[in-house]
Amino acid sequence: MKKLAVSVALALSCSGLALAEQPKQIRIGVDATYEPFASKSADGKLVGFDIDMANALCAQMKAKCVFVEQDWKGIIPALNAKKYDAIISSMSITDERKKAVDFTDKYYHTPSRLIAKAGSVKGTPDSLNGKRIGVLKASTQEKYAQKYYAPAGAIVVPYDNTQQVYLDLNAGRLDGTVADSVEGSTGFLKKPEGKGFAFIGPVLADQTIFGYGAGIALRKGDDALRNGFNGAIKAIRANGTYKKVNDKYFNFDAYGA
């Protein structure tokens, strides 16, 4: 009987939370293998631009972020399975993803680029014929490599996270990767493992693939939360909080044009 009472109380409190217009706690899905946006510090804490930005947005909305870690390829299915309420994990707003989730306005926008051994390739799709290009599974970069490099004869190899890509680049199993320019620089090129590698060619441009910058993904129809985040993004852009977080990581404005 006691058990029943407890579970009834639990059920009531849960439904109470769901009914509240703006939840006190917002569960945030994040893939913590994406330095400097989201990674784990030596003591296991989540750190990075996405984490600080999420905390700033939650604070603006008078709520508390609770982070839930998730592999990149499962990050949208887990959102729709209600494992968390929002994805703040450098997710590019693309038309294809919009079929599965809703997005807020962008909260930053950095371009993607090709990374390879310095001087090994020219960067044109043709120069990648027969080369092995590692990419993050289900990323915009994978889409780009499949669309432009695979038809030119490159072998596109998908990985579960960017760390595995960088391991295999370093080991020589891969000839190159397509990565976000900021993440590729901090997560690989500036580290000892990235020695001898460099950005090749210009910034990659294809808006149908790379979309409109990184946004916060929400379940379809979760308009209350979407409006809340959109308002918060505007507010922290205006009140200087965004700049404070931005300047901790970058010497340029990551918000983009």
Binding site: K73, G74, I76, A100, K137, A138, D168
Partner: peptide, 20 residues
């Protein structure tokens, strides 16, 4: 380890269509 066996194929579709 990057191989596209039967599970790998399913995994690819899962991440493409967001349907597990």
């Amino acid at each position: 380890v990057t191989l596209l066996d039967i599970t790998g194929a399913a995994d690819r579709l899962y991440s493409t269509y967001y349907m597990p």
